[in-house]
């Protein structure tokens, strides 16, 4: 049941046709695992907190550095040296004190990923490296929960939504390829665009509204200001999702 304050706070989204108080209740009951609160994770967490997602479980092992501040909009110069997860939680709590924030400052690894994701209803992939992205993708498939992928480079970004058993997974998309981990060039507006697309997908999934970005890789080229879609088919022989639950 939504309180009077919640009904007022979320009034402008509750009035969206098909959303309603029932939709807001769904958001309130949801628990979203956000892997990484950097360039992508900042807008994802901010907009999901503003929308009233009941529980955000945010994981990041890094501390804030000066060079983060061109894109990681949750942080301020005075936060340098603080743990990102704790600092992000403090900001998100100020934005929306009614939601629950759980913080994890551990490195996501093969050994702990299932425990860290816990009983979250979905995973948002806001990481900065492919091995951890694959690990989270596999965990989502194993737990049979959605996975919302986003990645950026310079003025460009990509996004795709994975519904286990129904649509192509990250491994179907990239076939397990690992690219060298180098410092990635990026302008802050790019993860803002892609992070907002990921957050939109999360909200749509919870509400059961609209058409998800499944089976499609959305490619954003900010320099040409152009969005392009590519068809990504589920690989029946995929080592990760080929035997997914629900197939």
């Amino acid at each position: 049941m939504l309180s009077k304050k919640e009904l007022k706070r979320y009034d402008r989204q509750i009035m969206i046709p098909g959303f309603g108080a029932a939709g807001q209740e769904k958001l309130k009951k949801a628990k979203v695992f956000i892997a990484g609160v950097g360039g992508l994770g900042s807008p994802v967490a901010l907009y999901l907190a503003a929308a009233g997602i009941g529980t955000l479980r945010i994981a990041d092992h890094d501390t804030i550095e000066l060079s983060n501040l061109n894109r990681q909009v949750l942080y301020r110069e005075k936060d340098i040296g603080e743990e990102k997860a704790a600092s992000a939680a403090a900001k998100l709590k100020k934005l929306n004190p009614q939601i629950k924030i759980e913080t994890i400052s551990e490195t996501i690894s093969e050994a702990n990923v299932a425990k860290l994701v816990g009983d979250s209803d979905m995973i948002v992939d806001a990481m900065d490296n492919l091995p951890t992205r694959y690990l989270l993708n596999r965990t989502a498939i194993q737990k049979n929960i959605p996975f919302f992928h986003g990645a950026v480079y310079g003025f460009e970004g990509r996004a795709m939504t994975v519904i286990p058993g129904k649509s192509a997974c990250l491994n179907c998309l990239y076939h397990g390829v690992i690219v060298p981990e180098e410092k990635t060039p990026v302008i802050g507006v790019t993860p803002a665009v892609i992070g907002c697309i990921q957050a939109t997908e999360v909200i749509k999934y919870i509400l059961g509204m609209g058409e998800l970005l499944t089976g499609r890789l959305l490619n954003y080229d900010g320099l040409r200001m152009k969005f392009t879609e590519f068809s990504i088919k589920k690989d029946p022989g995929c080592a990760i999702c080929g035997k997914a639950p629900g197939r």
Binding site: M127, N129, R133, R158, V177, V179, T184, P185
Partner: peptide, 10 residues
């Protein structure tokens, strides 16, 4: 033909 670079930045 689209040539798409695999990116991993976050």
């Amino acid at each position: 033909i689209n040539i798409v670079l695999i990116v991993h930045g976050g």
